[in-house]
Simulated scan of single mutants.
Amino acid sequence: MTTLASVSRTTPVAGPPARFGDLLASEWIKMRSLRSTPWVIAFTVLFVVGSAAVATLSDTAARSGPAEFLPYDAYPAAGYLTLILVAGSMGALTVVSEYSSGLIRTTTVAVPARGSVVLAKAAVTAAVWTATGTIASTGSFLVSQAVLNGRHAGALITHPGVFRALVASALLAPVCALVGLGLGVLLRHAAATMVTSVFVLLMLPTMFSESNRWSADIKHTLVSAAWKRLIETWERGPDSLAYTATVPGSWIVYVLWPLITVALAVFAVRRRDV
C-alpha cells in the first residue's frame, strides 16, 4: 500500500508558476551581476560622446566660413557604428553566455515557459540599452552644441530634424541589442552569433549602394541605413542621383528588426529542445 509519505518523497510538489515580474527581476539580477556590463556601457558612452566632440571640433576648425550644426558631427559614424557593434554583441551575450555555461538548462527547468524567459530577457535588454542610448545620444548632442555655441552656431532641439536625430540615435542601441539577442537565441553559439550580428548590422549595408533602385531598396531595409536616414536634417534635392529612403519607412525598419528577431527567438525556443 502506498502511503502519503512515500508519494511526497517520490513526487515533486509543483510550486506556483513564475510571474513575469519575477522573470524580469531574475534577468535584471543576471545582467547586473556581470561586472563587465557597467564598464562596457560606461566606456561605450564615453567613446560615443567623445567622438562627437572630436568630430565637431575637427569640422569647425576645418571650415573657414561660419560654423553650423551638422548631424554627422553630433552623431558621427565612428561613435555610432561602435555603439551598434557593442549593443549587438552585448545583446547576444545575454543569451549565448547561458548556453555556453549550461545555465540555460537550470533556467528552463525552473521556468518551463521558455517563451516568457526570452521575452523577459528582451524587456530587460531593451530597458538597459534604451537608457544607454539615451545618455549617449543626449550627451553627443550637448557636447556638440557646447562646441558650436562657442562660435555662436548652436542649434535648438526644436530645429527641424534635430529631435528626430536625437531619438533615432538613442533607439539605435536597443534595436541592435534586441537583434543580437534574437540571433543569440536562434544560433546558440557565441562565435556564430557575433559574426552574424556584425555582418548583418555593420557589414551588409556596405555591400549595397543607393545609385541603383534594387540595391537601394535592400539597403533601406537595414538598421544602420535607416539610422543614417533618420539623422539627416536636410532633404535631398530632385537632382540627387541616389534613391533616398523615406523617414516613415526608416522608422518601420527600426520596429520590424527587433520585433521579427525576438518573435523568431520565442518561436524557436518553444519548438526545440535546450
Rank of each mutant, 00 (worst) to 15 (best):
T2L: 15
V7C: 02
V7D: 15
A14S: 15
G15R: 11
A18D: 13
L24H: 04
E27C: 09
W28Y: 11
I29L: 10
S33L: 05
R35W: 14
R35I: 03
S36P: 05
W39Y: 09
V40I: 12
V40E: 04
L46P: 05
V49F: 01
G50M: 05
T60M: 03
R63Q: 06
S64C: 08
G65Y: 05
P66L: 02
F69T: 07
Y72N: 15
Y75M: 10
A77Q: 13
G91V: 08
T94W: 01
V96C: 10
I104L: 03
T108F: 00
A110G: 12
P112Q: 01
L119V: 10
K121R: 14
V128E: 02
V128M: 04
T138F: 07
F141S: 07
L142V: 15
S144R: 02
Q145F: 05
G154R: 00
G154K: 00
L156R: 08
I157C: 06
T158S: 08
P160W: 00
A165F: 03
L183T: 12
A192P: 07
T193G: 11
V195F: 05
L201E: 10
S211K: 13
N212C: 06
S215W: 08
H220E: 14
A226V: 07
K228A: 14
R229G: 11
T233Q: 10
W234G: 09
G237W: 07
L241R: 11
T244G: 13
A245I: 09
V247P: 04
P248H: 00
W257G: 10
I260D: 14
V262D: 02
V262H: 00
F267Q: 12
F267I: 12
F267P: 01
V269S: 07
R270S: 13
R270L: 06
R271T: 10
V274S: 08
